[in-house]
Computed example of a mutant assay.
Amino acid sequence: MFPILVRLPLAVAGAIAGWFVAEGTLRYNIVQMGIAFIMLAAFITTCIYAPTLLRWLGIIRDRPRDGP
């Protein structure tokens, strides 16, 4: 299960890196790793800020607060 969680983002990052750098070079591996890190950071940021953004857009309404 774990290898597929690693291979899928690297496959996408590899496709994107292939647009900019020739495959098989050291530079390709570095660019692929950098793109994968950027994708990971974007995913984590989206997960963290999704509730706030959805509330701001009006898709999710605030729940009433209990207590004083």
Rank of each mutant, 00 (worst) to 15 (best):
D66A: 15
R7T: 15
I30F: 04
P3K: 06
G24H: 00
L5G: 06
C47R: 07
I30A: 01
I4F: 04
P68I: 01
R61S: 12
L53N: 03
R27D: 11
R7N: 15
F2L: 13
L54K: 07
T45I: 08
T25Q: 00
Y49E: 10
L53M: 10
P68S: 09
A13Q: 03
G67K: 00
G34R: 09
W56R: 02
A41L: 07
E23I: 09
G58R: 00
L10Q: 11
R61Q: 08
P68Q: 11
T52N: 07
R65L: 14
Q32I: 04
I4K: 01
D62Y: 14
A11K: 12
D66K: 15
F43T: 07
P3M: 07
I38F: 12
I48V: 04
Y28P: 01
A22R: 13
W19Y: 13
G24S: 01
I60K: 00
A50K: 04
I38N: 14
L5R: 00
A15L: 15
A41K: 04
A17S: 12
L8M: 12
P51Q: 00
A42W: 10
A15V: 10
G34S: 14
R27K: 13
Y28V: 03
I44L: 04
L8G: 10
L5A: 05
F37R: 13
G18Y: 01
P3V: 05
L53V: 11
T52G: 05
M39R: 07
T45A: 11
I59R: 00
M1C: 06
L8V: 15
W56T: 05
R7C: 15
I4E: 05
P9E: 08
R61A: 11
G58D: 00
G58W: 00
L40N: 15
I38R: 13
A36F: 02
L26F: 12
L40E: 08
M1D: 10
N29M: 15
L8P: 12
V6D: 00
L57A: 05
P9C: 08
L40V: 15
V12E: 04
R55N: 12
P9K: 08
